[in-house]
């Protein structure tokens, strides 16, 4: 009997050592297969993007070449310069479009972060009459198609006198259900003991929220920023805003893109310009997600 226990102990010791050495439960063959598979898939995913970027750098004679080449032979930035010349000639200046987009994106994202995480906090950590119903409503509303709500939305914005102001884009973005949902789900993972401890120490609700909950949900915050910036940056807002000097960059750009075959190079440049900001925000906040995740150390 005691022999068996001894054997088991030896086995456990052996396994403990293995854990320290490398990840358990992994075979070398599996790891190699995984690397190959991921490389192939990553290549497939990224090819169209590389092609598009190269298209923007191709001079005119290469753009229409057959068979099409992935990489531009003589990369130039002519298309981008042409783009700025075209934009410069429009009667609303390029910087104004840029300003509009930046304003809408920054204000909308900031408000969304504050308002949605406040709501998500109480929904995740407290029970009160109506909380369940409200959350169900949010989940359901994520499923309604945006095209349908466009007309009723217009009528409501009109009633609030918000048509043709920046608020028509900014305010609805505050309540984007996707970010709210994600935040609430994430906050449920926070140990309640953390909040209780702070309360016993005499912190007010607002202090608990701003000093304890918010710093601990950085990954979710970053994810919300990604979604919000993406949606706002790409929002043409042509439905709710009709004065030209309040329109966003995307709208101005899509007009150029509609210019037909003569504008092929410029259209490719437009696509690249529009990609840059969402991708850049993603790259910046993604590294932070991983960082905060690794150092968050929230063990119950």
């Amino acid at each position: 009997m005691s022999k068996k226990i001894k054997e088991k102990n030896v086995e456990i010791e052996y396994r403990k050592k293995l854990i320290k050495k490398r990840k358990p439960n992994r075979s070398v063959g599996g790891d190699i297969g995984l690397y190959i598979f991921l490389t192939v898939m990553a290549w497939l995913m990224v090819v169209p993007l590389i092609y598009q970027v190269n298209n923007a750098m191709k001079p005119l004679d290469e753009l229409f070449k057959y068979p099409p080449r992935m990489i531009a032979l003589n990369p130039t930035f002519d298309n981008f310069f042409d783009l700025f010349v075209t934009m410069g000639k429009s009667w609303v200046s390029f910087t104004r479009y840029l300003f509009n987009t930046l304003l809408v994106t920054i204000l909308g994202t900031a408000g969304h972060l504050l308002i949605a995480s406040m709501g998500a906090f109480v929904l995740a950590k407290y029970q009160f009459p109506g909380s369940q119903t409200f959350f169900k409503l949010v989940t359901v509303s994520m499923m309604f198609v945006a095209q349908v709500t466009m007309i009723p939305n217009y009528l409501i914005l009109n009633g609030l006198n918000m048509i043709d102001t920046y608020w028509a884009i900014i305010i609805p973005a505050f309540a984007s259900p996707t970010g709210f949902f994600l935040m609430k789900q994430f906050m449920e993972g926070l140990p309640s003991s953390l909040i209780e401890a702070a309360k016993i120490d005499g912190a007010s609700e607002w202090r608990v929220f701003s000093k304890i909950v918010m710093p601990n949900v950085k990954p979710a915050l970053m994810t919300m920023i990604i979604f919000s910036v993406q949606a706002l940056w790409n929002n043409p807002a042509s439905m709710y805003i009709y004065s030209e000097e309040k329109k966003t960059l995307v709208f101005a750009m899509s007009q150029i893109q509609g210019g037909g075959i003569a504008r092929t190079g410029q259209a490719a440049a437009v696509a690249v310009v529009l990609m840059i900001v969402p991708i850049a925000t993603f790259i910046i906040s993604e590294s932070q997600i991983l960082e905060t995740m690794a150092s968050s150390g929230l063990k119950d």
């Binding site: 409200f134 409503l137 509303s141 349908v148 709500t149 009723p152 309540a175 259900p177 709210f180 609700e205």
Partner: peptide
Amino acid sequence: FLAPYALIFFLFYVAPV
């Protein structure tokens, strides 16, 4: 805490539906 979100949410997501 929930009020600001709920207000905007009802106005622009529930009411249109």
